[in-house]
Design a binder for these strands. Structure first.
Length: 374
DNA sequence: CCGAATGAAAA
DNA sequence: TTTTCATTCGG
């Protein structure tokens, strides 16, 4: 079949003022913004997307969908009726989430040019865990998109003015990756990095709330994570395998996610005390290790129900992506590879026994620039 | 429509 | 390598 080209040139783009066409995401929108009931191709998002982390404790319909009750995106890009929008990339997903989260923290309306900047800063400040998470989300959306529009091929409009406007992209190396912040100006007067250096105390303020205060206030930070990953169908079939393309890019770094519960930081790109580095499962073959990196210590905060046996606790496999599994019948410790070989059948554990505090929500919120001074 | 960001994909 | 376009919505 001929590929369904995305025919949307700059000219034909704006046809009428209102079109029914921007509900393209209507169908798969809930994939982005929430729990998707649409059959999960890979696996449901193992990480709650912003809204769920902030508003709904679990999977409810209290999802914030852009076109749901909203006054409708009046400024949504209008396109020709048959236009198929591209799937959003990781950053765009991140930005959307950032936007929603920020919106509910600040009443006033935001200039989205600034939102974009802030989101970018947050993006660079965020841990690899979070970025990977959004990469996964984007990847999933891409697959959904492919399913929904088989044969879709992105075809950008005419490359007008190869020489005139070819200056869109600003310096990409203008970032202080040490501080994870843009090095030079960009923001009015001061750089975030500068402000942080000058006022270290502002760091706690930057968070907008103190961790302690948060724990008392935000009870839903304690979510039963990954239950979504426990849907019956996924249960055994594609258990541990993060699908090839969604596989974590850098297992090693992923596995270094700090787990210190008393000090929940997420700057896992930096130095991490050896004691906090989860030990790897050395039994796994290199191949397997790459596809399904396991950590004995969860890359996120976990608490067990009081009654949970130590055996159960030890038997759990944690994956950097937030999923967790335990040997089905075996009460045996994970490293008992001696017997069953390497193909241990993995089964989701009883999610009642374990509760996760999603680090994502906490970190994400911490990324919001409350003290922005634009 | 433009902008402001990053990244995927096409030219 | 360079350009478009994904999101979002005030300017």
């Amino acid at each position: 079949m001929p590929p369904v080209r995305n025919v949307a040139s700059r000219r034909s783009r704006r046809l009428s003022t209102q079109e029914p066409c921007d509900d393209v995401w209507e169908d798969c929108g809930d994939l982005l913004y929430s729990d998707s009931d649409a059959e999960p191709t890979i696996s449901e998002p193992t990480f709650p997307v912003v809204h769920s982390a902030v508003t709904s404790p679990k999977r409810t319909s209290s999802v914030v969908h852009p076109s749901a009750g909203s006054p409708r995106a009046s400024h949504a890009r209008q396109r020709s009726g048959d236009h198929i929008p591209r799937p959003p990339n990781a950053f765009i997903c991140f930005r959307s989430a950032y936007c929603l989260l920020e919106k509910q923290k600040t009443d006033g309306q935001r200039d989205h040019r600034i939102v974009s900047k802030d989101a970018a800063i947050a993006w660079h400040k965020s841990s690899k865990t979070v970025r990977t998470k959004y990469k996964l989300i984007a990847e999933e959306k891409k697959q959904q998109h492919a399913k929904m529009y088989p044969g879709y091929a992105y075809s950008p409009g005419s490359r007008r003015g190869s020489g005139e406007k070819g200056k869109k992209r600003k310096a990409d190396d203008d970032w202080d990756y040490e501080e994870r912040v843009p090095r030079s100006k960009r923001r009015g007067s001061q750089t975030v990095a500068q402000r942080l250096r000058e006022a270290p105390a502002a760091k706690s303020k930057r968070t907008g709330y103190s961790p302690s205060a948060a724990s008392s206030t935000r009870k839903r930070s304690r979510v039963v994570a990954a239950p979504s990953a426990l849907s019956p169908e996924i249960e055994r079939a594609e258990t541990p395998e993060l699908s090839p393309n969604t596989s974590v890019e850098s297992p090693d770094s992923e596995l270094r996610t700090p787990v210190d519960t008393s000090h929940p930081t997420f700057d896992d790109d930096d130095f991490v005390p050896t004691a906090h580095i989860p030990h790897l499962d050395l039994d796994a073959t290199n191949e397997n290790k790459y596809l399904t990196p396991r950590v004995s210590t969860p890359p996120f905060e976990v608490s067990f129900e009081p009654g949970t046996s130590q055996q159960t606790r030890d038997a759990i496999f944690f994956y950097p992506d937030g999923t967790y599994y335990a040997p089905s019948s075996a009460p045996s410790p994970i490293d008992s590879s001696s017997s069953s070989g390497e193909d241990i059948e993995l089964m989701p554990i009883n999610d009642k026994e374990v509760q996760f505090t999603d680090p994502f929500a906490a970190e994400f919120e911490s990324l919001i620039h409350v003290d922005r001074l634009d």
